[in-house]
Amino acid sequence: MTGGDSLPPIARALVGEIEGHLLVAAARAEGRTAAARFTAPFDWLGDARRREVEERFEAEYLTLARTSWQRTAERAGRLRGEYEERYRALRRRLLAGFLLGACAVFGCAGVLVAVLGAGRG
Rank of each mutant, 00 (worst) to 15 (best):
Glu30Leu: 06
Thr33Asp: 02
Leu100Pro: 05
Thr63Leu: 02
Gly16Asp: 15
Asp43Leu: 09
Ala36Gly: 11
Leu116Phe: 07
Leu95Glu: 08
Thr2Asp: 07
Ala26Gln: 15
Leu90Met: 08
Arg75Lys: 14
Gly3Thr: 10
Glu30Ser: 01
Thr2Arg: 09
Phe98Tyr: 10
Val53Thr: 07
Leu95Tyr: 00
Ser68Pro: 01
Leu62Val: 09
Pro41Met: 14
Phe57Arg: 12
Glu19Val: 03
Trp44Asn: 14
Ala27Glu: 06
Arg50Gln: 13
Gly101Thr: 06
Ala40Val: 06
Glu60Ala: 07
Tyr87Pro: 00
Arg91His: 05
Leu14Ser: 11
Val113Pro: 01
Ala40Met: 09
Gly20Ile: 06
Gly4Leu: 06
Tyr61Phe: 15
Arg80Gly: 04
Val105Phe: 12
Thr33Tyr: 03
Gly20Ala: 08
Ala26Phe: 11
Glu82Trp: 04
Gly81Leu: 01
Arg56Phe: 01
Arg37Leu: 06
Ala26Lys: 15
Val113Leu: 12
Glu55His: 01
Trp44Ile: 13
Ala104Tyr: 11
Leu116Trp: 00
Glu74Pro: 00
Leu99Glu: 15
Leu14Val: 09
Cys108Ala: 11
Val24Arg: 12
Tyr83Met: 14
Glu52Met: 05
Asp47Glu: 14
Glu85Thr: 05
Cys103Ala: 15
Val113Tyr: 07
Gly121Ile: 05
Leu95Gly: 06
Phe98His: 08
Arg75Ile: 04
Leu62His: 06
Leu90Phe: 04
Leu112Ser: 11
Ala59Arg: 11
Gly107Arg: 09
Tyr83Gly: 00
Ala13Leu: 05
Phe98Lys: 11
Arg91Cys: 02
Leu94Gly: 06
Cys103Ser: 15
Ala114Gly: 06
Arg50Pro: 05
Tyr83Thr: 10
Thr63Ile: 03
Leu95Cys: 00
Ala27Thr: 02
Phe42Arg: 14
Thr63Trp: 04
His21Asn: 01
Gly31Gln: 02
Gly107His: 11
Asp5Pro: 03
Val15Trp: 02
Phe57Val: 02
Ala65Cys: 01
Glu54Cys: 08
Leu112Gly: 12
Thr63Asp: 14
Arg93Tyr: 03
Arg75His: 07
Arg92Gly: 04
Ala35Pro: 05
Ala34Gln: 07
Thr72Gly: 05
Gly107Trp: 08
Trp44Gly: 13
Leu45Trp: 10
Ala40Gln: 12
Ala35Arg: 00
Ile18Ser: 11
Glu52Gln: 10
Ala36Val: 03
Arg12Glu: 03
Arg66Ile: 00
Arg91Thr: 06
Val24Glu: 15
Val115Ile: 12
Val53Cys: 08
Ala48Ile: 12
Arg91Leu: 05
Val24Ala: 13
Phe42His: 15
Leu64Thr: 02
Thr39Cys: 12
Ala102Lys: 07
Glu55Thr: 03
Ala13Lys: 10
Thr63Gln: 08
Glu54Met: 03
Arg50Glu: 12
Gly81Gln: 08
Thr2Asn: 06
His21Pro: 02
Ala25Ile: 07
Tyr61Asn: 07
Gly117Asn: 10
Ile10Leu: 08
Ala29Cys: 14
Arg66Val: 00
Ala26Met: 13
Tyr83Ser: 08
Ser68Asp: 01
Arg78Asn: 04
Val15Asn: 01
Leu90Ala: 11
Arg120Pro: 01
Asp43Val: 10
Arg80Trp: 03
Leu23Ala: 15
Pro9Leu: 06
Asp43Cys: 10
Leu22His: 08
Gly121Leu: 05
Trp69Lys: 04
Met1His: 02
Tyr87Lys: 09
Glu30Gln: 06
Gly121Cys: 01
Ala29Ile: 10
Val113Cys: 09
